[in-house]
Design a protein around this nucleic acid. Structure first.
Length: 271
DNA sequence: CGTCCACGTCTAC
DNA sequence: TAGACCTGGACGG
């Protein structure tokens, strides 16, 4: 469940699930190749915050208030789940055991999720378009002349150094909502001519977040809710009437079929 | 059965 | 700029 909206929902879920709980132990599933996460304190609380596609977990000592942080990525399938201890889901890879018989688990079928003990957010990822909108915009404006910005906007929207949190469904939905913009236009020109891109990078994730949060109580079903119950959100991604092309990273880009007749698309397609 | 596909990074020729 | 990393669901024979 892993673009910006789902990361925010995941942070909400953790904060809600861990509220009032006292944790005593961390355990890693040995099948996972990630580093062991040592139990940080004898008794600790857990809280979470998201920034783009990253998730920061904070462990706080219940006595001294000292804290340690764990930076996570959710990969393609990562999410959290609170269960009774002993009933952890299949594919639980990091387990946080609380005192009163419950466990908060990081569950990740494909194991693309990652974690690392850190002090800060990754410096190579840009500001969050929904929480740090001003910084997000300034970071792009200040770098409009960079080589990375000469690539097609459909690809640059996936560049996490500028568009932290935008993934494959959001780029499709964002570009689909700018009907006059050819999605194969160089990003610097596209952004200059259509500054509404900035607004959409904030508002479309926020809408997905609001829909996901409102439908269900922040579980792994969030993605399912957005995808199946919110018929008017996904206008482009997954729509059989749309055109598709594999981008240079092997990801399928969904877009309005009218652009398949354009020169920019032909050049992109043949390259 | 088998092949293809999936909301994302990573690193190695 | 391919592949590698993974599991499992959908769909074809």
């Amino acid at each position: 469940m892993p673009e910006l909206a789902e990361l925010r929902l995941t942070a909400d879920y953790i904060n809600q699930a861990a509220s009032g709980l006292k944790f005593t132990k961390i355990h890693k599933n040995p099948v996972h190749k990630g580093k062991e996460v040592p139990t940080p304190f004898k008794w600790f609380t857990i809280s979470a915050e998201s920034r783009g596609k990253e998730l920061m977990i904070t462990f706080r000592d219940t006595d001294t208030r000292k804290f340690k942080r764990l930076l996570m990525g959710m990969g393609m399938t990562g999410h959290f789940k609170l269960t009774n201890t002993g009933n952890e889901p299949k594919h639980a890879h990091l387990m946080f055991y609380a005192t009163d018989g419950v466990t908060l688990s990081f569950v990740d079928v494909r194991r693309f999720g990652k974690w690392k003990e850190v002090e800060e957010w990754s410096s190579n990822r840009g500001p969050d378009p929904t929480k740090e909108y001003k910084d997000f915009k300034e970071n792009i404006v200040a770098n409009m002349d960079k080589a990375a910005m000469k690539k097609p906007i459909c690809e640059v929207l996936m560049n996490q150094g500028y568009f932290n949190g935008i993934g494959n469904y959001l780029r499709a939905e964002i570009l689909h909502r700018i009907p006059k913009l050819n999605p194969f236009t160089p990003a610097n020109k596209a952004i200059h001519d259509h500054p509404i891109i900035f607004i959409l990078c904030k508002e479309l994730p926020l809408k997905a977040y609001a829909l996901g949060g409102g439908q269900l109580s922040l579980t792994e079903d969030t993605w399912y809710a957005i995808n199946t119950n919110i018929s008017n959100y996904f206008m482009c991604y997954g729509n059989a009437d749309m055109a598709r092309v594999k981008d240079k990273n092997g990801r399928v880009f969904w877009f309005n079929p009218k652009w398949t007749k354009s020169l920019l698309f032909s050049l992109y397609h043949d390259a």
